[in-house]
Design a protein around this nucleic acid. Structure first.
Lengths: 277, 277
DNA sequence: TCCTCCGATTGGTCTTGACCAACTCTTATG
DNA sequence: CATAAGAGTTGGTCAAGACCAATCGGAGGA
């Protein structure tokens, strides 16, 4: 019972089939930013329960194809934008308005996992910490917590800590400006996580939203002098890492910033099958 | 209504509260590999509908804390293991049995997104492609598709293509051995995706399972000569990137391979509150 | 003109109940 | 003793319905 009408080999889940149908429709019949019919209508139109429809929508949202907001509706999300995370050169076109916003410095006890990475801090020790937020395309895409054990920066006047550079800067630049740390290198890990309540609020997402957690270990003099934990919105970001990339000649200029090709194909025609009414 | 008994500020969703309760229980009362009570029991025990319980379990599975298998049960997952992805040195303890398994070379039309990255292939062109699988800790953690346009390796005897190195090797090593390509550098992007049916099968997961998609762009002579698309299980893997990391003296030897600390704290006591019966 | 309030709309949460599919273990059978 | 057939267990899918919470827009009042 479907449109493909296979013999009946493996009964594909309804929501899975629904997802592919919607996905195709998204490509062919909708514009970015366009608003879909509401869930109750869609469910009725496909002859499924709302829960089933929602299962498909959830998948699509996870893939960054949709954006849902309570009280508003479900809209077609723009393609993910590349967010440079590596230490190397910018290669993928970065957003023109990509900027970090640095908060105030505090004294906190870092999470256990962070403490384990810091050579100079025992479990339970308080360390300096700064919260930062990364804005791109007019929206927050990441929050970061930077942890610097006191012993990494002994005898630093509190003044310096209260007055950060105030503007955009890469993590290592902040470490230099705030604490005059000169780094030798860094090491990063990326993993999937779900947003904690505080991070979710800053990212304008609901708690539990999928995020990419980037843990950076800053190294100087052979020891880990700082650790940064960045939380990126997984639905809108594609992290890019470049290590000693020679500037590509032609390929780099192939398209303008924001509107990059999507992960697995993506065109934007127009039509009117699923459109309103 | 809850255990925390806040005044009643923001009514925390039930499944969210449930998730934290379960998460704590996982830390304090269960061993890795232990099997939880079944969903119907758990739901009854917490006085919620099974659907609600499942919402909490889904979150925990997404975070890599649980593993669920139909017909078997829900088990406590081991901590994520770090999987080295960068071009640099191994720093995080890699698994002793980490190995790539290279398949046969075929001729395929790469997905549009890949073609867009390949300088030497127009949309629709066939290119060489090799499927590879990465095994770690006795299970498949990633599948990869390597795309090499013919013009990158003109006039290569088919023999070479049919007989890969047969064993473990990093991506660039494969490119060298298979096609004698010497690379200048590479660039990677990481994004969240959901497993396609074929990848899911290879990863022993259900279609739609969350994966980390690593797209690697191999560069030689200033052009992109190959593109690799790796699909990592997001629930079991933590990708690590190291660029010119100086070997840390003490910190590197702090713990033995597999059993690393978990992302946000994690100890393993024993108890018996939720345990069977 | 500006503001506030209220109601309609939309996605988010939760319940109950049912059946399906993968798996394990027991039991019957050769 | 090995194998096959069932039965029972467990997670996966689906339905139908109810209510909650965020949002937006218009009506009404200052």
């Amino acid at each position: 019972m479907g449109t493909t009408t296979q013999p009946d080999a493996v009964p594909e889940p309804k929501y899975w089939h629904l997802k592919t149908v919607l996905s195709d429709a998204l490509d062919s019949e909708f514009e970015v930013g366009e608003i879909l019919p509401n869930e109750r209508d869609l469910a009725a139109r496909f002859g499924v329960a709302r829960a089933t429809l929602r299962q498909a929508l959830e998948q699509l949202e996870l893939e960054g194809r949709l954006q849902r907001r309570r009280g508003v509706g479900t809209t077609v999300a723009p393609p993910r934008f590349g967010v440079d995370v590596g230490a190397g050169v910018h290669v993928w076109p970065g957003a023109p308005d990509d900027a970090w916003q640095t908060g105030e410095c505090e004294e906190t006890v870092p999470p256990r996992a962070v403490a384990a990475l810091l050579d100079a801090a025992a479990d339970g020790d308080e360390v300096h910490s700064v919260r930062r937020t990364r804005m791109t395309h007019g929206q927050p895409v990441a929050t970061e917590l930077l942890y610097v054990p006191r012993s990494s920066v002994p005898g630093l006047p509190a003044e310096t800590l209260e007055e950060p550079s105030g503007g955009s800067a890469r993590g290592r630049a902040v470490l230099r400006e705030l604490w005059r740390l000169e780094l030798q290198g860094q090491e990063r890990t990326v993993e999937l996580g779900s947003a904690r309540a505080d991070d979710a609020r800053q990212l304008d997402r609901l708690p539990g939203a999928p995020v990419l957690v980037v843990t950076t270990r800053y190294v100087a003099q052979g020891t880990t002098v700082a650790v940064g934990v960045s939380t990126y919105r997984a639905d809108t970001c594609r992290l890019t890492f470049a290590d000693r990339m020679p500037e590509p000649q032609a390929a780099a200029a192939e398209s303008t910033p924001s509107e990059r090709e999507r992960a697995h194909g993506g065109r934007h025609r127009t039509g009117a099958r699923l459109s309103r009414r």
